[in-house]
Design a protein around this nucleic acid. Structure first.
Lengths: 263, 263
DNA sequence: CCACCTTACTTGTCATGACAAGTGCACCGC
DNA sequence: GCGGTGCACTTGTCATGACAAGTAAGGTGG
């Protein structure tokens, strides 16, 4: 028995929900029916349904059979952390152009985020990320020195830094993302092909080990006409988060979007 | 017995964790100990721990007693939905200035978001939201007509629209938030006291009933120097989301933030 | 002194049984 | 026809019991 029964039940139901076999609003089999189908007691069945409920996939309550709430699944941790993995999962082609990689003393903001002293050495990476060849995001990442030094042995244009670090034994398992908006500076503007001062969606990310030790701090600036971030929120279920690609047109970025003005 | 035992156990442990009595990294009582303390079987105890695990508060695994992972709790649904409730929970004073409330035919974007026909009547509300008297957010909300009509009997400058709608029987129980960045138009600029074209953090929110029927669509534009949004993400636990107030200075918004430029 | 193994303790999983509480529908009386 | 009632079915909650699987510590043999 490799996988627990309740996980197999959950996986099966999840597959049927996201696959569309069970459409939104449709009623799932009742607990007793699932018990019969899988020849198990109510325990594992309830455990599976509880997991799906926590994911926000199914709803329902006492006296009411479970129903499909949505076919949307929250993006897993790795997908949410790595641009390359996210793009590939979307079926798009990720790309990158490394502008510079450098070892230099930590600036105050970086030192604070990485919990090291100002002036301690860090490895900073400045990359332009592409989606199907289109400029999408400017990434300014600072790694603590023991992690960053690994990057000098790696072609940062070739693939996912995250996957490379993972196979080198760097465990990134907790992350904190803070979102705001900034105006494009000269570097952003020329790389992303937008006018200077254009609004960009900024994600500042701090990621580290399970113990809370920070490994990387990143300042990512997205073209808001290409990428948005999404939070799905329900009364009782846990929120689900995701990064969303918007297949917009190239000329979509106007200085002031007047089309949404009321009156 | 008003509250189920497993909920009482979970509440007690949660209180002790966020209250600091159980610090991060500390071990919780083992299951058998909790069984003794509460004089219950393992069922409710495991249910309580499972809930806390889903909230990301505790970790641990087979053979290892549960440990406190973090004292941070995800903001509850209502707090994340209502500006007034959020501000008050923060200990700040929310304020609002209603610029206009109008009944008009739905524009295409609004009609699409509310799943009604273009030109169907909607009630649109344009408000400036304040935090401790400082301009913080411009809110453009469109309600479906049956809900929006209630607002004409309500002083939209007096308090929380959500609290009012809730007590009138409107159940907002699912919401979807999409984040991007836009440049401030003339209206935004004059209300928020920023230069036209300044970058704003935009949250577009669609909220509705549990059945998925949309009730409101809102375009909220935040001053990014005052409010940010946060996602806390861990390898196995569900993500926790929050809206964060940044006690910044008033002169913090420069045309181009050059201080974060590398090299 | 160190590597290995045994052992006690922990959590994960599952079965079985029982009752409470909520929902929806069919039936019945008016 | 219509409204109210009762019943069948559903999920929520909890007890008890059992075994598997993983962890950590202490003892043992080299």
């Amino acid at each position: 028995m490799e996988q627990a029964i309740h996980e197999r039940i959950a996986d099966d139901l999840r597959r049927r929900i996201v696959g569309g076999e069970l459409s939104v609003g449709a009623a799932l089999p009742s607990e007793s029916q699932l018990c019969e189908q899988w020849s198990v007691s109510r325990g594992p069945v309830r455990q599976a349904l509880s997991a799906l409920r926590a994911e926000g996939l199914v709803g329902g309550g006492r006296g009411r059979p479970p129903v499909v709430r949505t076919g949307q699944v929250s993006q897993p941790f790795e997908t949410f952390l790595s641009f390359s993995l996210w793009a590939r999962g979307l079926g798009r082609t990720p790309g990158q152009r490394t502008v510079e990689i450098a070892r230099r003393p930590a600036r105050p903001e970086v030192a604070d985020a990485l919990a090291i002293d100002e002036g301690d050495p860090v490895v900073e990476l400045l990359r332009l990320r592409l989606l199907d060849g289109r400029p999408t995001m400017v990434e300014r990442t600072a790694f603590v020195e023991p992690v960053g030094r690994l990057l000098f042995d790696f072609d940062t244009d070739s693939g996912s830094v995250y996957a490379y670090l993972a196979e080198r034994g760097v465990d990134l398992s907790v992350a904190r993302h803070v979102f705001d908006a900034v105006a494009a500076d000269e570097t952003d503007a020329s790389l992303l092909d937008v006018p200077p001062g254009a609004p960009l969606l900024r994600e500042r990310r701090r990621a580290g080990s399970a113990a809370g030790e920070p490994y990387e701090y990143s300042d990512d600036r997205y073209r808001p006409d290409v990428v948005t971030f999404t939070i799905e929120n329900a009364q009782r279920a846990r929120p689900s988060v995701g990064r969303t690609w918007r297949p917009g047109r190239d000329d979509d970025m106007r200085p002031a979007p007047a089309e949404e003005e009321p009156s």
